[in-house]
Amino acid sequence: MSAIAVAVVDDHPVFRLGMVALLSTLDDIEVVAQASSAAEALEVVDGGVHVVLMDLELGDGSGVEVTRVLRSRFPGLRILMVTMHEDEESLIASIRAGAGGYLVKGAGPDEVERGIRAVANGELIVSAAVAAKAMTAVSAPPHRVTAFPELTERECEILDLVARGCDNASISRRLVLSPKTVRNHVSNVLSKLGLPDRSAAIVRAREAGLGV
């Protein structure tokens, strides 16, 4: 059996180098590439890589977007997210982009090894810390879209967070979107609903049962 070729993508040198050192001690796992940014990841990851350990937030972009691009280039490539974020939004965004696993950075060496081998075999693996939150989110009734049929699912999601009192920066982090994208979505929501400002959007959304 050939070794699992792994690329490690993380903009924190200490974590990245530590992960490379750990993986070098494991049988049948070989680190073949490293990247410290989204741009570098898109350059160094090629068809010879089996599994990418991907950080969610990179200095020049989102690990979710890099995952989406790499999976479109190499459909057989497996992505294992390794991140500090334990919220269900980040997990769901990662899975939708094509990630096959999601581990928090507090995971132990055995869990990391198990995660790599699992996603390499096409299995889905998720840290227990976020699995329960994700199940709650997935099983929640789809009231957001029906409350405002003129909005897209993403716009409804952002309106719900606005109604909860989240600012654009917070929404950006939770949904792993750029601040500019969030601003554009908020602007579209106000335009579609004919609302003058964010305060009016909060009132309208809460009247419809969002933000609770």
Rank of each mutant, 00 (worst) to 15 (best):
R96E: 15
A97V: 08
A97E: 05
A97M: 01
A97D: 00
G98F: 08
G98Y: 04
G98L: 07
A99S: 06
A99N: 05
A99C: 07
G100N: 10
G101H: 04
G101S: 07
G101V: 12
Y102R: 00
L103G: 00
L103T: 06
L103S: 04
V104C: 06
K105T: 05
G106F: 05
G106W: 01
A107F: 03
G108S: 13
P109T: 03
P109E: 00
P109C: 02
D110N: 10
D110K: 12
D110G: 08
E111R: 14
V112D: 00
E113R: 05
R114C: 10
I116K: 03
I116Y: 06
I116P: 07
I116G: 03
I116A: 03
R117D: 11
A118I: 11
V119Y: 05
V119P: 04
A120H: 06
A120C: 08
A120R: 03
N121T: 13
N121V: 12
N121S: 15
N121P: 09
G122K: 02
G122Q: 10
E123S: 13
L124D: 02
L124A: 13
L124T: 13
L124S: 12
L124K: 04
I125D: 09
V126M: 01
V126G: 08
V126N: 01
S127T: 09
S127A: 15
S127P: 00
A128W: 03
A128H: 11
A128I: 09
A128S: 14
A128F: 11
A129G: 06
A129Y: 01
A129D: 08
V130D: 01
V130G: 05
V130F: 05
A131G: 13
A132S: 13
A132N: 11
K133I: 12
K133S: 15
K133G: 15
A134M: 14
M135E: 11
M135Y: 02
T136V: 15
T136E: 15
T136P: 03
T136D: 10
A137F: 13
A137Q: 09
V138W: 00
S139A: 15
A140G: 12
A140Q: 11
P141S: 11
P142A: 10
H143V: 15
H143R: 14
H143T: 14
H143S: 14
R144L: 15
V145W: 00
V145D: 04
V145T: 12
V145S: 12
T146D: 12
A147Y: 04
A147F: 07
F148T: 04
F148D: 01
E150N: 07
E150F: 00
L151M: 02
T152A: 09
T152Y: 03
T152N: 04
E153H: 06
E153P: 07
R154D: 14
R154H: 00
R154P: 05
E155D: 09
C156H: 04
E157G: 10
E157R: 12
I158S: 03
I158V: 15
I158D: 04
L159A: 09
D160K: 03
D160V: 10
D160Q: 09
D160N: 14
L161V: 07
L161Q: 07
L161K: 02
V162R: 02
A163V: 08
R164P: 06
R164G: 09
G165S: 05
C166R: 13
C166A: 13
D167R: 11
N168Q: 15
A169W: 03
A169Y: 01
A169H: 07
